[in-house]
């Protein structure tokens, strides 16, 4: 009893300090938020001086919205909860709003960069590659910090995360370092000096930000991308959809598409025969490729047309 009393007193003091600090933090945050009150977030602009506006563009190009918002369930923006059905089980995307407990509000810049570059959480544990860090690892430091600035400018949501529902052994987090050793080629991705800037930009948009290969390239039985079959399509894609070959194979891929055909497709979803994309690609067009600049859509087309045709 005698020992308990000082401990209780210490706990009370700690609680008081915590409360004071929290109050101070709220006051500071409130003061900082005031000038922005009533203003819309800046529009996505890749050439802006404002990191938040640049981050909004990275956010669109990286297609974060679709997986991290449960649009069909009427979920809060970026509060996670979307179920992603895969051959390895069902992933439930996490909350990536700046909420300090349920979101990523407590992540430092270094934490944020490490999640994308190395597939690791702030506590050091490996992340599941449903978060496509195998692609995002190639992102530039500047794009990552801009993206963080944008995400941290958005409202926090107190939606708790839902655990994944994976089939063994894919749900065993301790095996992930092995997977990373096998499949993660750590970025950032360096430009190929033998290729023009437009091609390099296209490769960055397709292979890094857009993470197109995560659906359009087939996977090994361990869930790693089969890099020899780059963009060859995937019969067992997410959500049970078969994903088409988008290499320049004239019959099975998009070899018969002109650069203009690809640009128009990425802008409004129309294929050369006048048909329109639906399902998951429809989402990608709405949330991501339709929001890119015309130059970036052209760079994507130029890069895709340069790839080796896949059978």
């Amino acid at each position: 009893m005698r020992a308990a009393a000082p401990a209780a007193a210490r706990a009370t003091v700690r609680a008081a300090v915590r409360a004071t600090l929290a109050g101070a933090v709220i006051a500071v945050a409130g003061a900082m938020a005031l000038p922005a009150a009533g203003q819309d977030p800046p529009a996505a602009d890749p050439s802006s001086d404002d990191p938040v506006a640049r981050g909004a563009y990275v956010f669109a190009a990286a297609g974060c919205l679709g997986c991290h918002t449960d649009v069909k369930g009427g979920g809060t923006l970026l509060a996670g909860g979307r179920a992603l059905e895969t051959p390895f089980g069902t992933f439930h995307s996490p909350n990536i709003t700046p909420h300090p407990q349920h979101g990523i509000g407590a992540w430092s810049e270094a934490d944020f960069v490490r999640a994308f570059r190395d597939g690791r959480r702030p506590d050091g544990d490996a992340l599941f590659p449903a978060f496509p860090y195998g692609s995002y690892t190639g992102m530039t430091e500047r794009d990552l910090l801009d993206l963080r600035a944008y995400l941290f400018s958005l409202p926090a949501a107190d939606t708790p995360n839902r655990p994944h529902d994976l089939d063994p052994p894919f749900g065993w987090r301790f095996l992930l370092p092995v997977w990373q050793w096998l499949y993660l080629e750590r970025g950032p991705l360096a430009d190929d000096p033998s290729q023009p800037p437009e091609w390099n930009r296209g490769r960055y948009l397709v292979d890094v930000l857009g993470h197109c290969g995560e659906c359009h390239t087939p996977r090994s039985r361990l869930g790693g991308l089969d890099r020899d079959a780059h963009m060859a399509g995937n019969r067992a894609g997410p959500e049970g959809e078969a994903v088409p070959n988008i290499s320049p194979n004239p019959e099975r891929g998009i070899g018969a598409w002109s650069i203009g055909d690809i640009e128009l497709f990425l802008e409004i979803g129309m294929m050369p025969d006048g048909d329109f994309a639906g399902g998951s690609m429809g989402e990608v067009i709405t949330n991501s490729t339709s929001k890119l600049t015309a130059e970036d859509r052209r760079a994507i087309a130029v890069y895709l047309k340069s790839l080796p045709p896949q059978p």
Binding site: E241, A242, P244, G269, M271, D275, F276, A277, G278, G279, S280, M281, G282, E283, I285, T286
Partner: peptide
């Protein structure tokens, strides 16, 4: 198509 068509 995005909402109601199976694929493509």
């Amino acid at each position: 198509h995005e909402d109601f068509r199976l694929k493509k």
